[in-house]
Computed example of a mutant assay.
Amino acid sequence: MFLPQGELTMTNDMESLQNAIYLDQVPESWTKRAYPSMSGLAIWFTDLLNRIKELEIWTSDFSLPSVVWLAGFFNPQSFLTAIMQSMARRNEWPLDKMSLQCDVTKKNREDFSAPPREGAYIHGLYMEGARWDTQAGIMVDARLKELTPTMPVIFIKAIPVDKQETRNLYQCPVYKTRQRGPTYVWTFNLKTKENPSKWTLAGVALLLQI
């Protein structure tokens, strides 16, 4: 508040904001209205600008990008659900009988120039606890000092539950951050030659942020 002498008195909120900025932390008053993140303020702010830019590009013509940055959504679950809703509506299938099929490609974002006819290509995911062998197309053990390798572009499409492949698949949880728990997004079925229990015990997961 301003005093008659023209001086400014620091409130508790102002002091907390100042301390957070000085310590490169996202102020608590901001995190209450933002998406989950474990990044420092500088990285968080850069990430926020990238999210805004992504949405501006998308909304300029309201057409699906060739490859979607899944982590750029405030609520990525809604986008994945929309993929199922679109396919269910098109084929007049019940939504509760739908599931997502996850096919990991051998390509990066720059290799795509148009979106798929159905579903979506997504990028920006990282694997923790293992890595993806692009040539073999399966999960394998992580390399030393390679904690969160980047995943190739993933093709996501909706299919009926009874057509979902169940053999040699690891039900890999997807989280927004390394905090896991409350940041759970979805479960992607990834191909593996190992017993899926190996990856479960290793705590393997996909992350949208690292």
Rank of each mutant, 00 (worst) to 15 (best):
N12W: 10
S66P: 04
L125Q: 07
F79E: 01
P65C: 13
A205L: 08
G119S: 07
Y170G: 01
G40V: 00
G137K: 09
N195R: 08
V185S: 02
P65I: 12
I83H: 01
K32C: 03
I83V: 10
T148W: 10
N19Q: 15
E146D: 15
D96R: 03
I43M: 08
T192A: 06
L23K: 15
H123L: 14
H123T: 12
R131A: 09
G6L: 06
M84V: 00
T81D: 09
I83D: 05
W69I: 12
M1Q: 11
R131T: 03
K145A: 13
V68M: 05
E118S: 10
F155W: 06
R131G: 07
P160Y: 10
T105E: 06
I154E: 03
M38I: 02
K53I: 08
T187P: 01
T9C: 12
F45A: 13
N168E: 04
P160V: 06
E146W: 00
A34V: 02
N75K: 13
P182N: 14
A120F: 09
V185R: 06
P182C: 11
Q171R: 15
V67Q: 02
Y184K: 08
A88I: 05
S39P: 00
V153K: 02
W132Q: 13
E28M: 11
F74W: 02
T9L: 15
N12D: 15
C102E: 02
Q164A: 15
